[in-house]
């Protein structure tokens, strides 16, 4: 069942006298329980799209519905259905403790049993050690955890996270991704924007690649990789590359065989067939490196630019 539906969405605004076309006709359906990724470089329109979904922005044209509520006609109900983390650690009050922040936002979301919900979140996200200290004394990771807890305070059916790991170190980033995965496993729909491809590959069921306000492609990670047309590459370090290269050219579905500095690079073909051919040639296999096509190539192919640009 569709939980977020976006039809023919346009957003233009004026900045320093110029008209900026942030979204150029977005059509999108996100299913209930899905982990949906929005992948794109800075300025692609990801945040604008999220701000339209959460009613922070009024679109120039188009329709958005969340949990069956129309974003233009029933904005309060849409907001009540979404937990959103946009500005990360700056989305909470630093002069308050983590618990006071959760209590305040719980009240603004009209949560009846706030204390119980706060205790549940403290336990779920392991906030016990710092929740009663003022946020200004927290590390960046601790602030993000509390900001994430604030996102979950109303136990919403949809959560939207805008580059939540961008300021975190590796460990804190991993912990947060684990927590998000757990929430999704429990049935919450997650919309996740990032420009980090490994996050998309690790987390997302489906991904939309967005650039210049347009969705360039929308598929599963594997489906997107197929778009690039690239195949798996196997690099074999061998004692006699020439002999093996010749043998591999006859293996079924192998598309390309080349020799590089004492190694043979094979594109396409089934891994077991390639290994059989190497072993039966009697040549010593010193090392093997298998690399899959990545989303960076897909992105480059679709947009003509790299994600970090």
């Amino acid at each position: 069942m569709a939980i977020v539906e976006i039809r023919d969405l346009y957003k233009e605004y004026r900045a320093r006298g110029k008209v900026v076309k942030a979204l150029n006709g977005i059509d999108l359906t996100i299913e209930e329980g899905e982990f949906f990724g929005l992948l794109g470089p800075n300025g692609a329109g990801k945040t604008t799209l999220i701000q339209c979904i959460t009613t922070l922005l009024i679109p120039t044209k188009g329709e958005i519905s969340v949990c069956g509520y129309d974003a233009l006609r029933e904005p309060s109900k849409v907001r009540a259905s979404i937990g959103c983390m946009l500005t990360g650690e700056r989305s909470i009050y630093w002069k308050l403790t983590g618990r006071e922040n959760l209590d305040y936002f719980g009240a603004l979301y009209h949560i009846k049993k706030r204390r119980d919900r706060i205790e549940e979140l403290i336990s779920m996200l392991s906030l016990e050690d710092f929740i009663d200290r003022r946020v200004e004394t927290y590390s960046s990771g601790q602030r993000m955890k509390v900001a994430f807890a604030k996102t979950l305070i109303a136990d919403p059916p949809v959560i939207i996270l805008d580059e939540p790991t961008i300021t975190l170190d590796v460990l804190a980033s991993r912990e947060l991704r684990q927590a998000i995965k757990e929430i999704n496993r429990n049935g919450t729909t997650v919309i996740y924007t990032t420009h980090l491809m490994f996050e998309v590959e690790e987390l997302c069921d489906r991904v939309a690649i967005i650039d210049e306000g347009v969705i360039k492609a929308l598929d599963t990670v594997e489906g997107l990789k197929r778009i690039s047309g690239d195949e798996r590459r196997i690099k074999l370090s061998l004692s006699d590359p020439s002999t093996v290269a010749e043998a591999l050219r006859g293996v079924e579905s192998v598309k390309e065989v080349s020799e590089e500095n004492g190694s043979v690079v094979v594109v396409g073909g089934a891994l077991d067939s390639i290994l059989k051919a190497v072993l039966s040639s009697g040549v010593e296999l010193k090392d093997i490196d298998v690399s899959s096509p990545d989303l960076e190539n897909v992105f480059l192919k679709l947009t003509g630019k790299r994600l970090e640009e």
């Binding site: 959460t54 922070l56 309060s76 109900k77 907001r79 009540a80 979404i82 959103c84 946009l86 500005t87 700056r90 989305s91 909470i92 009050y93 630093w94 936002f105 009240a107 603004l108 979301y109 009209h110 604030k150």
Partner: peptide, 18 residues
């Protein structure tokens, strides 16, 4: 400036209650 205005606007009727 401190970044919390969006958080308040993300709640159902937060701006009026605040």
């Amino acid at each position: 400036q401190i970044g919390t205005l969006q958080s308040i606007y993300l709640t159902p009727d937060g701006s009026m209650e605040a």
